[in-house]
Design a protein around this nucleic acid. Structure first.
Lengths: 329, 329
DNA sequence: TTTAGCACTGCTCTTCTGTAAGTGCTGAAA
DNA sequence: TTTCAGCACTTACAGAAGAGCAGTGCTAAA
């Protein structure tokens, strides 16, 4: 348990360091703390012993440790009101009727990246609850048709289907009608099952060149993974003074370019969660704040990546704002 | 005009520097040049006077100048045969029947980025020659429908349309039928014109709630820019030793994140063109090799960005291979 | 025209030095 | 018991000085 004064000291150090990125010395805090630098030094010492503060070298000022940030986030930080400018920029996106929710999320996170100078990530994944609403087919030429699948939530997928050999347009139409009849209402990842166990057994009755057509459609519809990754403002986090060396920057860039690593940022929990340094699996030198969303048949994660020295209160408020505004839709 | 021996010297220096990224000294070339280092030094001096070589400081070895690379590329470099491994990896992509050409281009450039450790870019733009083949509409709920446009080349675009107030499904269907009748065969960037001058005047006759519907469709179809940008392997170029400082890396990353700058890489010429250092507008420290392609109603640029110290012959061969394989499709 | 030999130059790495910022400790005052 | 002025001490950082190295230009002889 730490004293009120120690808590104040920790708060001041964390906030000073977040702002200036330089170890905080005892003298700088005399005025606010209303005591001499020696007293502050001795308090700093206590906080260091508990593990909330660190030194960069034996005679340096203090820097919050991971545990220090954690304590700050859990016990000291106060919810911040959204500032006017942030609010304004986000509201124009959030209230835009002609954007689908999905685009609202993407755009908002773009804006947040600009506002905060951190990196933002949106991981989207079509939910397994999405149901097929309709399949449309448009012939392009002799051997190619475009198949389009629309789900009940308004997602659209399309695939080019290559059909070897000559097939009558009527045949294609019959196939599509048949598929449509059997497949509407199927969840998106059961499509290939329905094709195999319901369409395949009877397609021979209605369609002459059923083998070619069945195979073509089966291939086209067999994968609807449709995972999306959007990373905004990679450069932002690299501009931070803690990433002031070429190799560290390269390391981070490489991680952002690795799909698997970025995908692993996915959050399973519904709250707004903060992972400081080694608490996240991405990089020990960053903090990730993220939350899961489920919206309109799409389930995903919005995340924000910055230095551990992050404006925690502001970021949490911003993410909260987005979350509140999309969860209702 | 430079002598045969000078040309050989330049060739050796360029190729050595491309390989090792270190200024080339006179001693290192004695064996191949079959003369003493003093002779080589005097020849180097001549080449420096013409501006084909440079020193990094007064007593350093020589480095090719931009003009030196240019001379190498124009007069010395010989076409390289595709090596077995490169060939193999590309062929599996290029020959894959079930990929549409567009995906072949994207995939190939991804592979090339990995093979060469440079950065590749694909800029695509739907050609103005693309004609509307069909418009489909799928209702989602009371106030939302999905409109899908398919072009004669098999491109698919879709938009969510928000319809304020209550509108009968029949009305929507009539509108779509009307639009379909008038719009098929229109080039993609004339769609809004056709809507305004042909659909608008007569829609009132057939559709009751024509104002709401017309506006909704007009908004949805007014922009089909559909430009695509794909950047592969940003990290690759940053790993090169010439980009060994944080600020230079940040500069390059920022450029890659700026859509306008990346778009300006677009190439108008049909050949495979090489822009060394200040010859390109992207960054004086890189070389860009690029070419325009027109394929299947899409027109675009494939580009490769690396250090000026680039394996020119290999890259040209690789791009050539891609170009030859997509141009026929 | 070529080349051995030599003086010279600038880069790089290490060592050293002074300065600034900040600490811990001590003993006295409150 | 807490606070604090004063002091010795530590480290980072920047600049200067020196040694070693790689490579050059020039000269005079072959």
């Amino acid at each position: 348990m730490i004293s009120k004064r120690q808590e104040l000291l920790l708060k001041l150090i964390v906030e000073d360091y977040i702002k200036n990125a330089r170890p905080v010395g005892s003298k700088a805090l005399c005025n606010v703390m209303k005591c001499s630098s020696a007293t502050i030094r001795s308090e700093m010492n206590s906080l260091e012993e508990i593990g909330l503060l660190e030194k960069t070298h034996i005679s340096s000022g203090r820097v919050p440790s991971e545990k220090g940030y954690r304590y700050y986030v859990d016990n000291i930080m106060e919810p911040k009101k959204l500032n006017g400018e942030d609010m304004l920029k986000l509201q124009t996106i959030v209230d835009n009727k002609s954007l689908i929710v999905n685009d609202i999320i993407l755009k908002s996170m773009e804006i947040i990246s600009e506002l905060t100078h951190y990196t933002t990530i949106v991981l989207g994944k079509q939910s397994s609850e999405n149901l097929v609403q309709k399949i449309e087919v448009v012939p392009i030429d002799e051997n190619n048709i475009v198949a389009i699948v629309v789900t009940d939530k308004g997602h659209v997928e399309h695939k080019n289907i290559y059909i070897p050999g000559h097939v009558e347009v009527v045949e294609i139409k019959q196939t599509v009608d048949l598929i449509n009849k059997l497949i509407i209402g199927t969840s998106i990842n059961n499509v290939s099952e329905v094709l195999e166990y319901q369409v395949k057994p009877i397609i021979g009755k209605y369609v002459k060149q059923h083998e070619i057509l069945y195979n073509a459609f089966y291939n086209a519809f067999s994968d609807f993974a449709n995972e999306s990754i959007k990373v905004n403002g990679t450069k932002n986090i690299l501009m931070q003074p803690e990433f002031n060396n070429a190799d560290k920057i390269r390391e981070i860039i490489s991680k952002f370019e690795d799909k698997d690593i970025v995908e692993s940022i996915k959050e399973e929990d519904n709250g707004i969660n903060i992972y400081i340094g080694s608490e996240n699996n991405f990089d020990d030198d960053v903090t990730i704040i993220k939350t899961k969303y489920i919206v309109n048949g799409e389930e995903g994660t919005i995340a924000l990546i910055g230095p551990k020295r992050m404006e925690y209160d502001r970021v949490v408020t911003l993410l909260n704002y987005i979350k509140e505004n999309i969860d209702g839709k």
